[in-house]
Each structure stands twice: as structure tokens, then as C-alpha cells.
Design a protein around this nucleic acid. Structure first.
Lengths: 140, 140
DNA sequence: ATGCAAAATGTTACTTAGTTGCATTTAATT
DNA sequence: AATTAAATGCAACTAAGTAACATTTTGCAT
């Protein structure tokens, strides 16, 4: 169940401002990650693009959202798990990139694989991603 | 063992030009993926940046190199497996992103995991990546 | 309620990577 | 050597991301 934007902000030590709440609400209701340009367009009357940029920056820094870089190199943002904070991200899911619509979906998968790397490499985190056609594109 | 740049070009139906051979040679000897800006700097006397851009474009299109998007959204390029061509890429390895130096390494791993996705999602390919400290950064 | 300091915002300007169009040059073949 | 399709150089442009600084607003302490 979703926490209110207000609760999210205060629990992460962020001031409550109009655009932050709108962006959190918007990302919470979206079923896929959204880019800064996406949000700029939706909120062009509410805030300047630099403000949106900084909003995303601080939301990410505090662990409210996480960033996924899509296949074109553009950042897209999605709400984090409740347990994430600025110290720790626990978004152990798969990022599915739709080759048709370009959307990126966060999907839960059973478990991330384990593997071994050559001597000297120190792993901090592992990511699994996939490309293909999303559910909404494959039915139409 | 590495094929000569000349052989690579002719086997992929590409004309033999100076900058193409130099770029192939350079990527073959590099132990990590290189970005267009990296190559621009190395070959600024040999070719225009647009030529390098187009060289990378056609090498990728023909399956000579593959592109990895790094953590900042910038494309980096690495030589493909011998078996890759314009139709089929067989680069089933892990991309390791070093958080210290920013380099991206292609590392062989036993096998890519299998998993299931929600109804409707059609997977075309899967990627495994990791972040951490590379061998050369962790020793120094 | 009011004032204050720190934080957030708007504006402008800039950087960097990626991309397109067009005229010129070059590679590969005859 | 001539031909022609492909490759290159140049210039201009787009799009995303970022920085500086003056102004406004939030949250807190009075």
C-alpha cells in the first residue's frame, strides 16, 4: 500500500513542497519508470525544468526513487521499495525495457543469480535487465 | 585469438578505411569498453568526431562491436564475440561497471539466469550487470 | 502569530553526447 | 585510368543534464 507523498517526504527528511508531492504521486501511480522530460511535460505549468531536475536529484539521493538508464541513455525514475533510504537501496528487481514503446518496468523476480568474477573484482550490486515487448504492447 | 582489423572488416562487408582499422585495433587491445569521446580524443588527428560516430554506428550495425550504456548514460563500445553479426548478437556476458574509474568490463560468467515474467511480457534478451570496484582499482 | 535561517525555486547560461544534411573525397571494382 | 557507391569533413543543430546566482518559501524558534 502506498504512503502519502507527505509521509514519504517527512520520513526521508525532505521539505514538503508542491512539485515534490506531485512528482511522488505521479510516480506512485505510474506502472513504469518516467523520465525527466516526461515529467517536465506533465508539470510544465507547475515547475521549471531545473526544479524538476533537482527534485529528482534529491528524491534519488534520499532513497525515495531510483534511476534506471534506458536503452537510449536517458534516465528514468521509479519509486523505491519502502525499505530504501539514502544509505541502502533494496530494489532487487528486474528492469524490463520495452523495445516498442520504450517504457521501463520494474518487475519482481524470484531471486537474483549468484556468480563468481575474476580475482580482484568487488561486487557492490547486481542488476538484471531484459529487453522485449511489454504486456501492453504485445496485446495490441 | 584476434583477427586482423582488415579481416574483420572484410568478413562483415565493410570497406577498409584507416580510421575503422585503427578503432578496431584499439578496441581489440583494450581490456574495457571505450566511449566515443574516449576515441575522439585518441584519434583527433586521424578523424573528425562525426566520422568516429559513424564508424561506431556501422561497426555496431554489422555486429563487429556492441554498445553498453554506462551508469552516466554514455555509450561505450567493445568488440563482439566472433560469432556475432548484424543478425545475431551472442554477447552473453556480464558488464561490470567500476564505480571508481567508470570503466566497463565484459566478463564471462557461467550462465545467465532464467526466470519468469508476468503474463504478456515477451523477452528478447537478458542482461546481467554489476557495479563495484574493478581489479585494477581495488589493488591501488 | 512573527521573524529568521536554511533550503527550494526560477532564470539564464552553459556543457556534453548524439545526430543530420550536404558537398567533397576515397575505396573497390571494371 | 574511369566509375560509382560509400566514406569523410564540415557546419549546424537537438536533447539531456548541470551550474551560478538572485529570489522566494518552508519549517522552526521565538
Amino acid at each position: 500500500m502506498k504512503k502519502s507523498a507527505e509521509a514519504v517526504l517527512s520520513s526521508h527528511g525532505l521539505r514538503k513542497t508542491g512539485i515534490r508531492m506531485k512528482i511522488i504521486d505521479r510516480l506512485q501511480e505510474s506502472e513504469f519508470a518516467m523520465s525527466q522530460p516526461d515529467l517536465e511535460q506533465e508539470f510544465q505549468k507547475e515547475a521549471d525544468r531545473v526544479t524538476i531536475y533537482r527534485t529528482l536529484y534529491s528524491l534519488e539521493e534520499k532513497g525515495v526513487i531510483h534511476r534506471i538508464i534506458d536503452l537510449t541513455g536517458v534516465s528514468r525514475y521509479a519509486i523505491c521499495e519502502d525499505s530504501c533510504d539514502s544509505q541502502h537501496h533494496a530494489d532487487e528487481h528486474l528492469h524490463f525495457h520495452c523495445l516498442n514503446c520504450g517504457n521501463v518496468y520494474c518487475l519482481q523476480v524470484p531471486a537474483l543469480p549468484s556468480y563468481s568474477l575474476p580475482r580482484g573484482y568487488k561486487i557492490e550490486s547486481t542488476r538484471l535487465s531484459a529487453e522485449g515487448t511489454c504486456a501492453s504492447c504485445s496485446q495490441s
